[in-house]
Simulated scan of single mutants.
Amino acid sequence: MASAPTGRSRSLSICFPSAKAADIKTGPSFFASEPAAEFDFKGYLLRKAASVNRALDLAVPPQLHPKLMHEAMRYSLLAAGGKRIRPILCIAACEIVGGAEAFAMPPACAVEMVHTTSLMHDDLPWMDNDDLRRGQPSCHRAYGEPLAVLAGDALLFLSYRHLADMDNYPSGVPPALILRATTELSRSIGAEGLAAGQVLDMESTGVNKPIDVDRLESIHLHKTAALLEGSVAIGGIIGGGSDGEIERLRCYARCIGLLFQVVDDILDVTKSSQELGKTAAKDLASDKTTYPKLLGMERSRELAEELLRDAESQLEDFDPAKAAPLLHLANYIAYRQK
C-alpha cells in the first residue's frame, strides 16, 4: 500500500507526469473561463447526493435511543446538509472501474459519517473553536460540548459497523474486498491519516518559527487529502479495480485533496461567513499558516492550476465516459465558491 508523499516536488515525481500549459483547465473562481461541459455534472451531483442522503437517513433512523444523541448525530449528518463530496467520490471511483452504485453505497455512507465526525470534533472549543458549520450552529453550540463529543464518537463507530455489515451490500460483493475497504478506512483516518494531520496542524499553529511549504503540504496530505484518498481507494476496491487502477485513483485524490485545501485557504480570505456557511478568516485570526499566507495569493492560484491538471492526468487511461464524474469533480473543487 503506497504511503502519501510528503513534499510537493516528490509528489510530482511519483504520481504526476508533467502536463502542457495548454492542458490547464480554467474556471470562474480563480481562472479565466469555465471549462466546457458535455457531461451533466450538476444532474449527476444532485442524483448521487440524493441517493446518499436517503441511505444516510436509513442508516441513522430518528427513533433510536438515546434519542438526544441520535438527534445530534442526525443534526450534523443530515439536517446541516453538506456537499457529499467524499461519498460521491467513492461512488464515482467504484463506477470508473466497472462497479455499481449499490456496491459503493455502504462505504460511501461510512466515509460521510467519518467526515461529519471530524467536523463535529474540529469545531469544538479546544480544537478549531468554530460556532458555525454548513450555515448553521455547530453541533456543540446546538447540543453542548459533551454531547457533541459523544455523538461524534457514536457516528464514527457506526461508520465501521455500516461498512463491515454484509447485509448492507447486494449479493456478489466478496467479503475480502469489504475487509480490505475497512482497513483502508482505518488507515485514512488514524495515525497515518486525518488524525495525524490534525495533530500536525495543531503543532504548527501560532508557532514563532514559520513552517515551510513541505510541512504545510504534509499537514494537508494527512488532514484533508487522506480521507479523500480513502474514499476513492475504497470505491475502487469495492468496484473490483486492479492495483494499478487504485493507485492512479490514489494519486488523483492526493491532488484534489491539496487542491481542496488551497481553494479553501483562498476562499477563507476572499469570502464572507455568509457566503461560506462557516466562519470566514478564522485561520488568519488563529495565526494558522495557509497557502496564501505562505506563498501569496498569485502563487496559490498557480498551485491550484497545477494540482487541477495533475489530477486530470491521472484519469487519462480510464474510459472517458466513466471518468467524466471524477474529472468534473476536480473542476468543481477548483471552481467552488464556498
Results as ranks from 00 to 15, higher is better:
5 P>R: 05
13 S>W: 02
14 I>Y: 12
15 C>R: 00
16 F>L: 09
17 P>I: 04
18 S>L: 03
19 A>M: 11
19 A>I: 06
20 K>V: 04
22 A>Y: 04
23 D>Y: 12
23 D>S: 14
24 I>H: 13
26 T>Q: 15
27 G>E: 13
30 F>N: 02
31 F>T: 08
31 F>H: 13
32 A>L: 15
32 A>D: 08
37 A>V: 05
39 F>M: 01
41 F>P: 01
41 F>S: 09
42 K>M: 06
42 K>P: 06
42 K>L: 09
44 Y>C: 10
46 L>D: 15
48 K>R: 12
54 R>Y: 02
55 A>G: 09
59 A>I: 02
61 P>W: 05
61 P>M: 04
61 P>H: 13
66 P>I: 08
71 E>L: 10
73 M>E: 01
77 L>T: 05
78 L>G: 04
83 K>D: 07
86 R>N: 07
88 I>N: 07
90 C>D: 03
94 C>E: 05
95 E>N: 12
99 G>W: 00
101 E>M: 14
106 P>M: 06
111 V>P: 13
122 D>Q: 08
124 L>S: 07
125 P>Q: 07
140 H>D: 00
149 V>Y: 03
152 G>N: 11
153 D>I: 09
154 A>T: 10
156 L>Y: 09
157 F>Q: 01
163 L>E: 01
163 L>V: 05
167 D>N: 15
167 D>Q: 15
170 P>Q: 02
171 S>H: 11
172 G>K: 12
173 V>W: 07
173 V>H: 11
174 P>Q: 13
176 A>N: 04
181 A>H: 03
185 L>A: 10
187 R>D: 13
189 I>M: 03
190 G>H: 07
193 G>C: 08
197 G>D: 00
204 S>I: 03
209 K>P: 01
212 D>A: 13
212 D>G: 15
212 D>L: 05
225 A>T: 09
227 L>H: 14
228 L>T: 12
233 A>I: 02
234 I>T: 02
235 G>A: 01
239 G>R: 06
241 G>R: 01
245 E>I: 11
246 I>N: 02
248 R>H: 15
249 L>Q: 12
253 A>F: 01
254 R>W: 08
256 I>S: 08
259 L>K: 10
259 L>Q: 09
260 F>K: 06
263 V>E: 08
264 D>H: 08
265 D>A: 00
266 I>H: 05
266 I>Q: 05
271 K>T: 06
272 S>C: 11
275 E>D: 15
283 D>Q: 02
290 T>S: 14
293 K>V: 11
294 L>M: 04
298 E>R: 12
298 E>F: 07
302 E>K: 13
303 L>W: 07
304 A>R: 06
305 E>W: 06
309 R>T: 14
313 S>Y: 01
313 S>N: 14
316 E>I: 15
318 F>D: 02
320 P>K: 11
322 K>C: 03
328 H>L: 11
329 L>D: 01
331 N>G: 14
332 Y>H: 14
337 Q>T: 06
